[in-house]
Design a protein around this nucleic acid. Structure first.
Lengths: 205, 205
DNA sequence: TTGCAAAACGACACCGGTGTCGTTATAATA
DNA sequence: TATTATAACGACACCGGTGTCGTTTTGCAA
């Protein structure tokens, strides 16, 4: 398809592989996914794949990196510009675009948890995870702190503690729904509980 | 040590292996732990180990089984006998013996999460996890429901949804602290947030 | 159209973990 | 003390996944 350079083709191929890999990780999870799965899904050979990514870890971290930005960046930007209430900002960060409890969840969330928890004893992976987490944490903490300073939110809880707790809460929900079927309790129900929690701890509405 | 039967020696050996395995799983986590680690930690040969447990999964599920009971059983029993307030019962279940936020955590918790999340695509493992989870859920739901019926707890939230949310919350904390260092936010701080959450949703104190 | 750089290929060797099985060692029993 | 059932042993074959590397293919440029 693209021997001897061409940059565009090269990037396209890379993007294709990344897309395929993402699908594979969503389907199998991080541990169970193999490079062979990715090869087949992307329609590329072993050698071809390794030309772009040196191993599964590299591949996954690339996906993580490119996925991180979206909502988080948007929240950060909005915070700087202060285009909405802090409460709206927080809802945006927590629930995404529709800003309210919903049934959707980042399909990569389970794999992410898997990636970080299985990597907790690996120096490199742990450092990477922590760094990443801190960034995410900061977004929450900043919004909360700003909201508290403005008087929009109650200041009864420490912004950092609250931020970390909210993230734990969210991760817990993702974990729970990765393992368990919906049955009588829907993800939406629990998202609503999370919303209630936010209202209570920030004393909003 | 114990050729030709003796039942006691046999059970002792089995118990020793189980103890060793537990240590190994705590240290390495489920995925990274190998039967070799267990062999070495238990001071038993490959063949010896396989005499007692047919594989890692078997080994781990046995540990899970024997660890499950403790607090959960105690709570269940207390509930039947109604020896304490439902609030006390709930605290016992959530925080363990001292019934208040603390810095400790089941050292196996991270491995457990790992075990269940990596097993989510395996028919057997998933079924097993779900069944186990349901049991745990029921303990919470029963306490909450009883407390609500007695008027001790507010009934504004559905007991099942609340139970599942509490468990998610707890698992989220365990996950968070398996991956992240304590830094400025301590596990105890977040346990306190959990306690607050319980008070708010059940309208206690 | 021809030459070439390098993208794509896939066979291969390697590795670590697994579970088995024939052998050896030993505690109970008579 | 001899016998024996079987616990314990550890070498081995196997397997699936990984990453490499020599070969082939192919798009661009002269």
């Amino acid at each position: 398809m693209s021997p001897k350079v061409s940059k565009e083709h090269l990037q396209q191929r890379r993007a294709d592989i990344l897309e395929a890999a993402k699908r594979v990780f969503i389907q199998y999870g991080y541990e169970a996914a193999t490079m062979k799965h990715v090869m087949e899904e992307a329609g590329v050979s072993r050698g071809g794949l390794y030309q772009y990514f040196s191993n599964k870890e590299d591949l996954y971290e690339t996906i993580l990196k490119e996925n991180l930005s979206e909502v988080s960046d948007k929240t950060k930007r909005s915070l700087d510009e202060k285009t909405a209430s802090y409460w709206d900002l927080l809802l945006l960060r927590v629930f995404g675009e529709d800003k309210q409890p919903n049934d959707e969840m980042d399909p990569l969330a389970p794999s992410n948890l898997e990636f970080f928890i299985t990597g907790r004893n690996d120096e490199r992976r742990r450092k990477y995870g922590q760094q990443r987490y801190r960034k995410g944490l900061k977004v929450y903490a900043d919004v909360i702190e700003a909201g508290q300073k403005s008087g929009e939110f109650s200041s009864q809880y420490d912004s950092k503690v609250l931020a970390r707790t909210i993230i734990s809460f969210i991760d817990g929900l993702a974990l729970d729904h990765a393992i368990l079927p919906e049955e009588d309790v829907q993800l939406k129900d629990q998202s609503t509980m999370l919303l209630e929690y936010l209202k209570m701890t920030l004393n909003v509405e």
